[in-house]
């Protein structure tokens, strides 16, 4: 091989390398721009909500009931109603969710039932929320005869948040090391005693974070409660009984946009409601995320 040929070969290799690094560079820039979109949208939505709604927030807005066909006054009953309905849903769902998680993580035996219950949980997570609304209407409102009420809404939302809660609790239980269990069993504990005294106390922070996340998801849901629990502009907006309709934040917003005849006059209140809803959801989420990180960091195992 002559020197010339060798130089040519060298140049070809260099060129190929340059081309490859150019391709890589271009690809990474494109990917970077693409991935910025998520951040961009979050920042934009937050900026938009805050900049538009800051003026709408006042003490009266947060503590008074709506007046004058929702053109004035506040949204306090909706805040309370939303907390009631999601809190109630959590209370209804949590015993079942925790029980399911304990069975799946601690007791399950391999075979048909385990597969069936896994499929059940996964499938339930994929059911559209409006379908939960339909089932809630058929089952809780008409068959159980709760009427369109806080109770029916709680039960519907409980069904909806069941898979989220089961998964979160199971994950928390699974993260308890096997050696903890073995230690308890070696000391002569029965399985239930071991779960009660060792596994559950260790998993509790994880379970609570999971339920806070589940609550954050449920509080913004509108479709499942719009036929089963909630209404726009009730004569008595404050929740008084389990068997009465309840005003909620997301449905109030929907009502202001779609039901109210005064779409343009309620602009400030619409933005204010969005702001409060976003603050509640984001706070719940951030609490759970920060708590989760702290618990993980504190873990000694």
């Amino acid at each position: 091989m002559t020197v010339d040929q060798e130089i040519q070969k060298e140049q070809a290799v260099m060129q190929e390398r340059r081309k490859r690094s150019m391709t890589q560079w271009a690809a990474f820039v494109l990917l970077g721009i693409g991935s910025l979109f998520g951040f961009f949208f979050l920042a934009f939505i937050l900026y938009w909500v805050i900049s538009q709604s800051a003026s709408a927030i006042s003490w009266e807005f947060l503590t008074a009931a709506p007046r004058d066909m929702a053109r004035a006054g506040g949204i306090a009953p909706m805040i309370v109603g939303s907390i009631y309905i999601t809190g109630g849903a959590l209370l209804v769902a949590m015993p079942f969710a925790l029980g399911s998680a304990i069975w799946l993580s601690e007791y399950a035996w391999k075979g048909w039932w385990l597969r069936a219950i896994r499929i059940g949980v996964n499938t339930l997570a994929g059911v559209p929320s409006i379908v939960f609304g339909l089932v809630g209407l058929g089952l809780f409102v008409f068959v159980f005869d709760f009427g369109v009420s806080l109770l029916a809404g709680m039960c519907t939302l409980a069904m909806l948040s069941l898979p989220i809660l089961i998964r979160a609790s199971e994950e928390a239980l699974r993260s308890v090391p096997r050696s903890f269990r073995e230690g308890a069993l070696a000391l002569g504990a029965t399985r239930w005693y071991m779960i009660r005294t060792v596994v559950l106390p260790t998993a509790i922070p994880g379970i609570l974070t999971g339920s806070v996340l589940g609550m954050a998801r449920a509080i913004g849901e509108t479709a499942p409660i719009m036929f089963t629990a909630t209404a726009f502009m009730l004569s008595n907006p404050w929740p008084t009984s389990l068997f009465e309709k309840v005003a909620t934040l997301p449905y109030h917003l929907f009502g202001l946009i779609k039901i109210s005849q005064h779409y343009n006059e309620t602009k400030a209140i619409q933005y204010g409601t969005v702001f409060v809803l976003m603050v509640v959801v984001t706070l719940l989420n951030l609490t759970a995320i920060i708590w989760r990180t702290r618990v993980r960091r504190k873990k000694a195992w």
């Binding site: 029980g99 399911s100 993580s105 399950a108 385990l114 219950i117 069941l162 096997r178």
Partner: peptide, 26 residues
Amino acid sequence: LGPGLKIRMKNRNIDCYVFFTLALIS
């Protein structure tokens, strides 16, 4: 199976079936 299952326990007690019943909810 979960970590609790890797520990072999043959007998299924009453508590086992209680949680199984709860797990049927989904």
